[in-house]
Amino acid sequence: MPPRGRASRKGHRMSAVAAAGPADAGVPGGTPSDLVLEARDLTLRFGGVTSLDGVSLRQRRGEILAVIGPNGAGKTSLFNCFTGAYRPQQGSVTFWRTSRRPARIVGRSPHAITHLGIARTFQNIRLFPALSALENVQIGTEVRQRYGSLSAVLGLPGARRQERAGVSRAFELLDLVGLSRRAHDLASSLSHGEQRRLEIARALGTGPRLLLLDEPAAGTNPAEKRALEALIRRIAGGGVSVLLIEHDMRLVMSVATTVVVLNFGRVIAHGTPAQVQRDPAVVEAYLGVETGVDAGGEVR
């Protein structure tokens, strides 16, 4: 983990730059201290293919921001830039763990970014299949623990205390996502919807200030979608900002405070769900004329 002191010093300089820089016209946002995440001019290329082409976005603290767009628009690439899995060729990403502590994201390794306070789930669920649901969440809750191998071997009281704390926190989170009764079942034996929720619990275990959800409703049934909607609201209500990629328009329109629409690696619209719904560019490029948003189906 990078030393905190250095990160915050660098961060102060960053915030000055961010405040002095021109705000992107029309991008909703406030003064930097309100923000939890700001991406500026992100460009990501794979060989000749440009996946992200100058994407900028801002997310305010506590906000539920949805990123939508047709397949291949660059949504997951954007997530991978935010979590360190990809390194964009241009642009910067700034994350505020607290309003006074900004940190530069690009160039950090994924685990360091998780330690800073950004957690994620994956589009095609990536759990630890042969571990129990509890152990999956425990791995998340234990990443901030400090005890080392020697104290684990010796069974020192500090290590035991932290271990117990990790377990009880994991149980709390399993309870939050409604999986406490399946704590000792293998992750791979859970249903698809349960696995999605377990992934959220594992991500929350790392103690994030910003949670990135990559298509959390994909492959879940209507009842599970309603439960997911409530869960996302609860998470945001608990002070964790949520950045969401989702194809299910009904879910997006009801849960998101702000929507950003990507197409061909560019931001083509942003605003409240109602504004985006009315935007002709969005209707043309993504939603299509016939597949109305009001129909509420999955638009792919």
């Binding site: 899995a85 685990h111 759990l127 630890f128 042969a130 571990l131 234990e142 071997v153 271990e163």
Partner: peptide, 27 residues
């Protein structure tokens, strides 16, 4: 003891899915 500690669980995570382990904050 090591296997049952957070160290052992981190190793199990790496073994099963290194990318997910990294994303969950395991160095």
């Amino acid at each position: 003891r090591l296997e049952r500690s957070r160290i052992g669980r981190a190793w199990a995570a790496i073994r099963e899915d290194e990318i997910a382990a990294e994303a969950t904050g395991v160095p």
